[in-house]
Amino acid sequence: MQAFVKTLTGKTITLEVEPSDTIENVKAKIQDKEGIPPDQQRLIFAGKQLEDGRTLSDYNIQKESTLHLVLR
């Protein structure tokens, strides 16, 4: 499924993900596309910070959801 990641600069990245993907996995995909190390990434969805060990389905993130990427 497709999900979108919006950065603070307003850029939107499109990712191909599965509901079973972990947040860690998603961060690795963002690193592949953008070169941002996962340890600098914080992903926010519905106002919550997403934890590495959880999956997209844990957070009820469905296709075409938009996550927000904040860098630390």
Score class of each variant (00 low, 15 high):
Val70Ser: 08
Thr7Cys: 09
Lys11Cys: 07
Arg42Ser: 13
Val26Pro: 00
Glu16Arg: 09
His68Arg: 08
Thr9Gly: 13
Val70Gly: 05
Leu43Met: 03
Leu43Tyr: 02
Lys11Gln: 09
Asp39Ala: 12
Ile23Trp: 02
Ile30Val: 05
Pro38Tyr: 12
Leu8Tyr: 14
Glu24Cys: 06
Gly35Cys: 04
Val70Glu: 13
Gly53Ser: 11
Ser65Arg: 05
Lys6Val: 15
Asn60Gly: 14
Thr22Ser: 08
Gln62Leu: 12
Asp21Lys: 01
Thr7Lys: 04
Ser65Gln: 09
Lys48Ala: 10
Gln31Val: 03
Glu51Lys: 10
Gly10Glu: 03
Arg54Asn: 10
Thr66His: 12
Leu43Glu: 01
Thr22Trp: 04
Ser57Ile: 08
Glu16Ser: 12
Arg54Val: 06
Leu15Tyr: 02
Thr14Phe: 10
Ala28Glu: 11
Gln40Ile: 12
Asn60His: 09
Thr7Ser: 06
Ile13Cys: 02
Lys63Asp: 15
Gln49Trp: 15
Leu56Asp: 00
Lys27Glu: 01
Phe45Ile: 04
Ile61Tyr: 04
Val17Tyr: 04
Pro19Lys: 06
Asp21Ser: 06
Gly47Met: 04
Leu15Glu: 00
Lys6Phe: 08
Gln40Thr: 09
Lys33Cys: 07
Leu8Trp: 15
Leu8Lys: 12
Lys6Asn: 06
Asp21Tyr: 07
Ile36Asp: 02
Gly53Ile: 07
Lys63Ser: 15
Glu16Asn: 12
Asp32Gly: 09
Leu69Val: 05
Thr14Gly: 05
Ile61Pro: 03
Gly53Met: 09
Gly35Thr: 03
Asp32Thr: 11
Thr9Asn: 13
Ile30Arg: 01
Leu56Arg: 00
Gln31Tyr: 15
Lys6Leu: 13
Ser65Asn: 08
Ala3His: 03
Glu34Lys: 05
Lys27Met: 07
Gln2Ala: 10
Gly10Asp: 05
Lys63Gln: 12
Ile36Lys: 02
Lys11Phe: 09
Gln2Arg: 14
Glu18Phe: 14
Asp32Val: 13
Asp39Val: 09
Thr22Tyr: 09
Arg42Gly: 07
Gly35Asp: 05
Ile13His: 03
Leu8Asn: 13
Val70Arg: 10
Glu18Ile: 11
Val70Lys: 08
Gln49Val: 15
Thr55Leu: 09
Lys33Arg: 10
Phe4Val: 08
Thr7Arg: 06
Gly10His: 04
Glu51Val: 08
Leu15Arg: 00
Asp32Pro: 02
Lys33Ala: 12
Pro37Cys: 06
Phe45Cys: 04
Lys6His: 12
Ile44Gly: 03
Ile23Asp: 00
Ile30Asp: 00
Glu34Ser: 14
Thr55Pro: 05
Glu24Asn: 07
Thr14Pro: 06
Lys63Arg: 11
Val17Glu: 00
Ile23Thr: 05
Glu16Gly: 06
Ile13Glu: 01
Pro19Tyr: 08
Arg42His: 14
Arg42Val: 15
Phe4Arg: 05
Tyr59Phe: 04
Glu34Trp: 15
Leu50Thr: 03
Gly10Arg: 03
Asp32Gln: 14
Asn25Cys: 09
Thr14Ala: 09
Gln49Asn: 11
Thr22Gln: 04
Leu8Phe: 13
Asp58Trp: 12
Val70Phe: 13
Ala46Asn: 15
Val5Glu: 01
Ile13Met: 05
Leu15Gln: 00
Leu15Pro: 00
Thr66Val: 14
Thr22Asn: 04
Val5Tyr: 02
Asp39His: 13
Ser57Tyr: 10
Leu71Ala: 08
Asp32Trp: 10
Ala28Pro: 00
Val26Phe: 04
Leu50Cys: 03
Asp39Ile: 10
Ser65Thr: 11
Thr14Tyr: 09
Gln41Phe: 14
Asn25Asp: 11
Ile61Cys: 03
Gln40Ser: 09
Asp52Asn: 11
Gln40Val: 11
Lys6Ile: 15
Thr55Cys: 06
Gln31Ala: 13
Tyr59Asn: 02
